[in-house]
Design a protein around this nucleic acid. Structure first.
Lengths: 125, 125
DNA sequence: ACACTTAGTTACTTTTTGGTTACCCATACT
DNA sequence: AGTATGGGTAACCAAAAAGTAACTAAGTGT
Protein backbone atom coordinates (compact mmCIF):
# COMPACT_ATOMS: atom_id res chain seq x y z
CA UNK A 1 0.00 0.00 0.00
CA UNK A 2 1.47 3.23 -1.15
CA UNK A 3 1.88 6.07 1.26
CA UNK A 4 0.16 9.22 0.16
CA UNK A 5 2.05 12.34 0.92
CA UNK A 6 0.23 15.61 1.11
CA UNK A 7 2.62 18.30 0.16
CA UNK A 8 0.64 21.49 0.14
CA UNK A 9 -1.38 23.15 2.85
CA UNK A 10 -4.11 24.68 0.76
CA UNK A 11 -7.74 24.88 1.83
CA UNK A 12 -6.64 25.17 5.48
CA UNK A 13 -5.41 21.61 5.89
CA UNK A 14 -8.80 20.04 5.83
CA UNK A 15 -7.48 16.60 6.70
CA UNK A 16 -6.83 17.50 10.30
CA UNK A 17 -10.23 19.07 10.59
CA UNK A 18 -11.93 16.00 9.23
CA UNK A 19 -10.21 13.94 11.86
CA UNK A 20 -11.00 16.38 14.62
CA UNK A 21 -14.64 16.95 13.71
CA UNK A 22 -15.52 13.68 12.08
CA UNK A 23 -16.62 15.17 8.77
CA UNK A 24 -15.86 17.65 6.03
CA UNK A 25 -16.55 21.14 7.38
CA UNK A 26 -17.54 22.44 3.99
CA UNK A 27 -20.08 19.70 3.36
CA UNK A 28 -21.42 20.04 6.88
CA UNK A 29 -21.99 23.71 6.31
CA UNK A 30 -23.67 23.13 2.99
CA UNK A 31 -26.01 20.58 4.52
CA UNK A 32 -27.35 23.32 6.79
CA UNK A 33 -28.29 25.89 4.18
CA UNK A 34 -27.79 24.16 0.86
CA UNK A 35 -31.19 22.57 0.43
CA UNK A 36 -33.12 23.01 -2.76
CA UNK A 37 -35.04 26.09 -1.58
CA UNK A 38 -33.17 27.19 1.50
CA UNK A 39 -31.05 29.98 0.08
CA UNK A 40 -34.10 31.59 -1.45
CA UNK A 41 -36.18 31.12 1.70
CA UNK A 42 -33.45 32.66 3.82
CA UNK A 43 -33.19 35.53 1.43
CA UNK A 44 -36.89 36.29 1.43
CA UNK A 45 -37.15 36.03 5.20
CA UNK A 46 -34.21 38.41 5.46
CA UNK A 47 -36.14 41.00 3.46
CA UNK A 48 -39.24 40.52 5.60
CA UNK A 49 -41.21 38.26 3.36
CA UNK A 50 -41.78 36.44 6.57
CA UNK A 51 -45.04 34.52 6.43
CA UNK A 52 -45.77 31.11 5.02
CA UNK A 53 -48.26 32.26 2.41
CA UNK A 54 -46.08 35.14 1.28
CA UNK A 55 -43.14 32.82 0.82
CA UNK A 56 -45.31 30.49 -1.22
CA UNK A 57 -46.43 33.28 -3.51
CA UNK A 58 -42.83 34.33 -4.04
CA UNK A 59 -41.73 30.76 -4.82
CA UNK A 60 -44.65 29.17 -6.64
CA UNK A 61 -42.53 26.22 -7.76
CA UNK A 62 -41.91 25.16 -4.19
CA UNK A 63 -44.75 22.96 -3.00
CA UNK A 64 -46.37 23.41 0.38
CA UNK A 65 -44.82 20.20 1.57
CA UNK A 66 -41.33 21.26 0.58
CA UNK A 67 -41.83 24.70 2.03
CA UNK A 68 -42.83 23.24 5.38
CA UNK A 69 -40.02 20.76 5.24
CA UNK A 70 -37.33 23.33 4.47
CA UNK A 71 -38.64 25.77 7.06
CA UNK A 72 -38.62 23.07 9.71
CA UNK A 73 -35.04 22.13 8.93
CA UNK A 74 -33.91 25.73 8.99
CA UNK A 75 -35.62 26.10 12.35
CA UNK A 76 -34.03 22.93 13.73
CA UNK A 77 -30.62 24.17 12.60
CA UNK A 78 -31.33 27.50 14.26
CA UNK A 79 -31.06 29.68 11.19
CA UNK A 80 -34.62 30.98 11.58
CA UNK A 81 -37.12 31.65 14.36
CA UNK A 82 -40.73 30.62 14.10
CA UNK A 83 -43.16 32.67 16.10
CA UNK A 84 -46.74 31.43 16.31
CA UNK A 85 -49.63 33.73 17.19
CA UNK A 86 -52.65 32.04 18.75
CA UNK A 87 -55.16 33.49 16.32
CA UNK A 88 -57.68 32.30 13.81
CA UNK A 89 -56.82 32.05 11.02
CA UNK A 90 -53.34 31.06 12.19
CA UNK A 91 -50.48 33.50 12.00
CA UNK A 92 -46.83 32.59 11.96
CA UNK A 93 -43.91 34.93 11.53
CA UNK A 94 -40.48 33.79 10.51
CA UNK A 95 -37.27 35.70 11.12
CA UNK A 96 -33.54 35.11 10.87
CA UNK A 97 -31.60 34.21 13.98
CA UNK A 98 -28.16 35.70 14.55
CA UNK A 99 -26.72 32.50 13.16
CA UNK A 100 -28.85 32.97 10.06
CA UNK A 101 -27.74 36.58 9.74
CA UNK A 102 -24.13 35.52 9.99
CA UNK A 103 -24.45 33.76 6.66
CA UNK A 104 -24.89 37.00 4.79
CA UNK A 105 -21.28 37.59 3.74
CA UNK A 106 -21.07 33.99 2.58
CA UNK A 107 -24.22 34.29 0.51
CA UNK A 108 -22.90 37.45 -0.98
CA UNK A 109 -19.74 35.71 -2.13
CA UNK A 110 -21.53 32.65 -3.40
CA UNK A 111 -23.83 34.87 -5.37
CA UNK A 112 -20.94 36.82 -6.85
CA UNK A 113 -19.06 33.68 -7.80
CA UNK A 114 -22.16 32.23 -9.41
CA UNK A 115 -22.77 35.30 -11.51
CA UNK A 116 -19.16 35.37 -12.65
CA UNK A 117 -18.76 31.65 -13.27
CA UNK A 118 -22.06 29.87 -13.69
CA UNK A 119 -24.99 31.98 -14.74
CA UNK A 120 -25.65 33.58 -18.07
CA UNK A 121 -28.11 36.41 -18.52
CA UNK A 122 -31.34 35.27 -20.09
CA UNK A 123 -32.11 36.43 -23.57
CA UNK A 124 -35.57 37.85 -24.16
CA UNK A 125 -37.11 36.11 -27.14
CA UNK B 1 -54.14 39.51 -3.70
CA UNK B 2 -51.94 41.36 -1.32
CA UNK B 3 -49.01 43.30 -2.63
CA UNK B 4 -45.75 42.24 -1.05
CA UNK B 5 -43.39 45.06 -0.42
CA UNK B 6 -39.73 44.35 -0.04
CA UNK B 7 -38.34 46.98 2.19
CA UNK B 8 -34.73 46.07 2.66
CA UNK B 9 -31.96 45.54 0.17
CA UNK B 10 -30.02 42.84 1.96
CA UNK B 11 -28.29 39.95 0.20
CA UNK B 12 -27.64 42.14 -2.86
CA UNK B 13 -31.22 42.36 -4.00
CA UNK B 14 -31.51 38.82 -5.15
CA UNK B 15 -34.90 39.33 -6.73
CA UNK B 16 -33.48 41.29 -9.63
CA UNK B 17 -30.80 38.73 -10.16
CA UNK B 18 -33.29 35.92 -10.24
CA UNK B 19 -35.17 37.75 -12.95
CA UNK B 20 -32.04 38.53 -14.89
CA UNK B 21 -30.45 35.10 -14.67
CA UNK B 22 -33.48 32.89 -14.36
CA UNK B 23 -32.48 31.29 -11.08
CA UNK B 24 -31.12 31.82 -7.62
CA UNK B 25 -27.40 32.58 -7.96
CA UNK B 26 -26.60 30.97 -4.64
CA UNK B 27 -28.34 27.70 -5.47
CA UNK B 28 -26.78 27.68 -8.93
CA UNK B 29 -23.36 28.02 -7.40
CA UNK B 30 -24.02 25.28 -4.90
CA UNK B 31 -25.16 22.95 -7.64
CA UNK B 32 -21.71 23.16 -9.17
CA UNK B 33 -19.59 22.23 -6.16
CA UNK B 34 -22.08 21.24 -3.51
CA UNK B 35 -22.47 17.56 -4.33
CA UNK B 36 -22.13 14.94 -1.66
CA UNK B 37 -18.41 14.37 -2.22
CA UNK B 38 -17.35 17.31 -4.32
CA UNK B 39 -15.87 19.58 -1.66
CA UNK B 40 -13.68 16.77 -0.40
CA UNK B 41 -12.66 15.71 -3.90
CA UNK B 42 -11.74 19.27 -4.80
CA UNK B 43 -9.79 19.58 -1.61
CA UNK B 44 -7.79 16.43 -2.18
CA UNK B 45 -7.06 17.26 -5.79
CA UNK B 46 -5.87 20.67 -4.65
CA UNK B 47 -3.31 19.04 -2.39
CA UNK B 48 -2.16 16.72 -5.17
CA UNK B 49 -4.03 13.61 -4.23
CA UNK B 50 -4.75 13.55 -7.89
CA UNK B 51 -5.38 9.99 -9.05
CA UNK B 52 -8.55 7.97 -8.99
CA UNK B 53 -7.24 5.25 -6.74
CA UNK B 54 -5.67 7.69 -4.31
CA UNK B 55 -8.90 9.58 -4.00
CA UNK B 56 -10.73 6.35 -3.32
CA UNK B 57 -8.35 5.41 -0.57
CA UNK B 58 -8.77 8.82 1.04
CA UNK B 59 -12.56 8.58 0.84
CA UNK B 60 -13.42 4.93 1.38
CA UNK B 61 -17.09 5.72 1.93
CA UNK B 62 -17.44 7.08 -1.57
CA UNK B 63 -18.17 4.25 -3.98
CA UNK B 64 -16.39 3.88 -7.29
CA UNK B 65 -19.54 4.76 -9.12
CA UNK B 66 -20.07 7.94 -7.15
CA UNK B 67 -16.43 8.90 -7.47
CA UNK B 68 -16.60 8.60 -11.25
CA UNK B 69 -19.88 10.43 -11.34
CA UNK B 70 -18.70 13.35 -9.22
CA UNK B 71 -15.41 13.64 -11.09
CA UNK B 72 -17.27 13.73 -14.40
CA UNK B 73 -19.56 16.49 -13.20
CA UNK B 74 -16.66 18.52 -11.87
CA UNK B 75 -14.97 18.11 -15.22
CA UNK B 76 -18.07 19.11 -17.15
CA UNK B 77 -18.41 22.20 -14.98
CA UNK B 78 -14.76 22.99 -15.61
CA UNK B 79 -13.58 22.89 -12.03
CA UNK B 80 -11.06 20.12 -12.74
CA UNK B 81 -8.92 18.87 -15.62
CA UNK B 82 -8.66 15.21 -16.48
CA UNK B 83 -5.46 14.17 -18.18
CA UNK B 84 -5.30 10.64 -19.53
CA UNK B 85 -1.99 8.91 -20.24
CA UNK B 86 -2.12 6.18 -22.87
CA UNK B 87 -0.50 3.55 -20.70
CA UNK B 88 -1.32 0.16 -19.31
CA UNK B 89 -2.46 -0.01 -16.59
CA UNK B 90 -4.31 3.23 -17.24
CA UNK B 91 -3.13 6.44 -15.68
CA UNK B 92 -5.24 9.53 -15.16
CA UNK B 93 -4.22 12.70 -13.40
CA UNK B 94 -6.70 15.22 -12.10
CA UNK B 95 -5.96 18.84 -11.37
CA UNK B 96 -7.85 22.02 -10.55
CA UNK B 97 -8.64 24.50 -13.28
CA UNK B 98 -8.38 28.21 -12.62
CA UNK B 99 -12.09 28.22 -12.03
CA UNK B 100 -11.63 25.47 -9.47
CA UNK B 101 -8.82 27.37 -7.80
CA UNK B 102 -11.00 30.46 -7.60
CA UNK B 103 -13.23 28.65 -5.12
CA UNK B 104 -10.54 28.59 -2.49
CA UNK B 105 -11.52 31.69 -0.53
CA UNK B 106 -15.13 30.54 -0.54
CA UNK B 107 -14.20 27.10 0.76
CA UNK B 108 -12.13 28.71 3.42
CA UNK B 109 -15.08 30.75 4.65
CA UNK B 110 -17.51 27.87 4.47
CA UNK B 111 -15.11 25.79 6.47
CA UNK B 112 -14.69 28.49 9.08
CA UNK B 113 -18.41 29.03 9.40
CA UNK B 114 -19.00 25.31 9.74
CA UNK B 115 -16.46 24.96 12.51
CA UNK B 116 -17.93 27.88 14.39
CA UNK B 117 -21.58 27.03 13.87
CA UNK B 118 -22.13 23.41 12.99
CA UNK B 119 -19.41 21.00 13.96
CA UNK B 120 -18.46 19.83 17.41
CA UNK B 121 -15.11 18.23 18.16
CA UNK B 122 -15.36 14.50 18.55
CA UNK B 123 -14.79 13.05 21.96
CA UNK B 124 -12.40 10.12 22.13
CA UNK B 125 -14.05 7.26 23.97
C1' DA C 1 -1.20 -20.36 -17.04
C1' DC C 2 -2.49 -17.28 -13.73
C1' DA C 3 -2.92 -13.32 -10.91
C1' DC C 4 -2.30 -8.36 -10.37
C1' DT C 5 -2.46 -3.58 -11.85
C1' DT C 6 -5.65 1.13 -12.77
C1' DA C 7 -9.58 3.41 -13.96
C1' DG C 8 -13.34 2.76 -14.80
C1' DT C 9 -18.52 0.62 -16.84
C1' DT C 10 -22.85 -2.06 -16.53
C1' DA C 11 -26.83 -4.06 -14.59
C1' DC C 12 -29.67 -4.50 -10.79
C1' DT C 13 -31.66 -3.08 -6.29
C1' DT C 14 -32.62 -0.11 -2.48
C1' DT C 15 -33.16 4.35 -0.45
C1' DT C 16 -34.23 9.03 -0.59
C1' DT C 17 -36.68 13.00 -2.64
C1' DG C 18 -40.26 15.32 -4.00
C1' DG C 19 -44.93 15.91 -6.29
C1' DT C 20 -50.10 15.60 -5.75
C1' DT C 21 -54.36 15.51 -3.62
C1' DA C 22 -57.33 15.68 0.14
C1' DC C 23 -58.08 17.14 4.67
C1' DC C 24 -57.92 19.97 9.32
C1' DC C 25 -58.95 24.03 12.77
C1' DA C 26 -62.28 28.08 14.37
C1' DT C 27 -63.94 32.35 13.04
C1' DA C 28 -65.70 36.07 9.82
C1' DC C 29 -68.09 37.20 5.82
C1' DT C 30 -72.01 36.68 2.24
C1' DA D 1 -75.82 27.43 4.94
C1' DG D 2 -71.85 27.76 2.57
C1' DT D 3 -67.29 29.63 1.69
C1' DA D 4 -62.90 31.74 2.51
C1' DT D 5 -58.97 32.27 5.54
C1' DG D 6 -53.56 30.65 6.98
C1' DG D 7 -50.57 27.30 8.01
C1' DG D 8 -50.04 23.46 7.84
C1' DT D 9 -50.57 17.23 7.88
C1' DA D 10 -51.19 12.64 5.95
C1' DA D 11 -51.32 9.22 2.49
C1' DC D 12 -49.94 7.76 -1.77
C1' DC D 13 -47.00 7.51 -5.83
C1' DA D 14 -43.29 8.45 -9.32
C1' DA D 15 -38.70 9.75 -10.15
C1' DA D 16 -34.06 10.38 -8.97
C1' DA D 17 -30.04 9.25 -6.40
C1' DA D 18 -26.98 6.07 -4.67
C1' DG D 19 -25.31 1.28 -3.09
C1' DT D 20 -23.42 -3.40 -4.68
C1' DA D 21 -21.35 -6.83 -7.33
C1' DA D 22 -19.52 -8.38 -11.47
C1' DC D 23 -16.97 -7.28 -15.50
C1' DT D 24 -13.48 -4.97 -18.76
C1' DA D 25 -8.74 -3.60 -21.06
C1' DA D 26 -3.52 -4.83 -22.00
C1' DG D 27 0.63 -5.59 -20.15
C1' DT D 28 3.87 -7.13 -16.16
C1' DG D 29 5.38 -10.31 -12.63
C1' DT D 30 5.40 -15.43 -10.60
Amino acid sequence: MEKIEIKSERFDNMVEQIKKYGGCPVSSTLKVFGGKWKPLILYFISVDVNRFGQLQRMMPDCSKKMMTNQLRELEKDELINRKVFAEVPPKVIYSLTDKGESLRPIFSELSKWGIENVLEPRMES
